[in-house]
Amino acid sequence: MSEPRKAVALISGGLDSMLAARIVQEQGVHVEGINFFTGFCVEGHTHAIRKRDRGRPKRNNALWVAEQLGIKLHIVDVVEPYKDVVLNPRHGYGANLNPCLDCKIFMVSKALEWMRDHGFDFIVTGEVVGQRPMSQRRDTMPVVARESGAEDLLLRPLCAKNLPPTRPEREGWVDRDRLYAISGRSRKVQQELARRFGITDYAQPAGGCCFLTDANYSAKLRDLWAHRPGRRYELDDLMLLKVGRHLRPRPHFKLIVSREEGETRFLEGYRKRFAHVRTVSHPGPLTLIEGEGLSEEDLALAARITARYSQGRGAPGVEVEAALPGQAPRRFTVTPLSPEAIPRAWYL
């Protein structure tokens, strides 16, 4: 008997990629999953940080999907190579800073690399024609196949019948008749398929699979780029954009003010690398100050803003501890800024 064909399936943690993998699995193909960590993934992070979210069941959806399907999952750290996708998308951005088309091309090309290194035969994705405005249009589907280099080794089981037959179909590795012709934004067929496969519990990402589709997050990322020499970022920047209140009182510095205990604990881990302020006389937040050339005046302003978010906000004076990076902390007392004294424009 011949060995079964092997497919590597892109697993996002959502329903579509789960169904796509399942459809191919059902045809006797050996399937393993691959999932990419870009740094912008919605998974876990904020739940892990915010204390009030900790009670909710928290799971990594991609791992959970793999478990349900009974397949191996390989999680690949692509933070570094992904930067070029976010910073210089050849096909541009979507509604926010989401470079969905370039992102898809990148992920399929990485899956192709993996496929070749591991002796697999083809790639499976959960893409559906017409489902997403940018990356899943009829005219962009061939772009992903072509520019990723996967060409006709890329099979989209959910909409394969709307597309020309791929090599896995032509060679009989999978039966085209048992693939689907889903198109458009309706989720009905997927829901029916899920029922048929006995899948009742699945994640339904609303806008997309990452923070780049989030308007607020994108605004903070734009602000970061605008105030740095050159558009660039590190993984820590991405993490910090997900935490706390962000205010930019002056062009040369911004504040990250924790909103609750979990965030304070998380920001603690960054304290040594940043100028920072925390309240001493009253319970309150920890504020990181990100910027260069900070003056005493800047530190005092940061302290007054921090005091405004402490339980001493109504008190005439709040004692704080403040330090510039690498310096010993100093204590002094400030008058909390009133909420009206903080212009809306400062909030990012």
């Binding site: 876990g44 739940h47 892990a48 900790r54 928290k58 799971r59 990594n60 791992l63 959970w64 793999a66 478990e67 009974g70 397949i71 191996k72 999952l73 999680i75």
Partner: peptide, 15 residues
């Protein structure tokens, strides 16, 4: 990260 108590075992199980 407390999530590791779920995620690492889930990863172990499938692999």
């Amino acid at each position: 990260d407390p999530g590791a108590l779920n995620d690492i075992p889930a990863w172990c199980k499938i692999n």
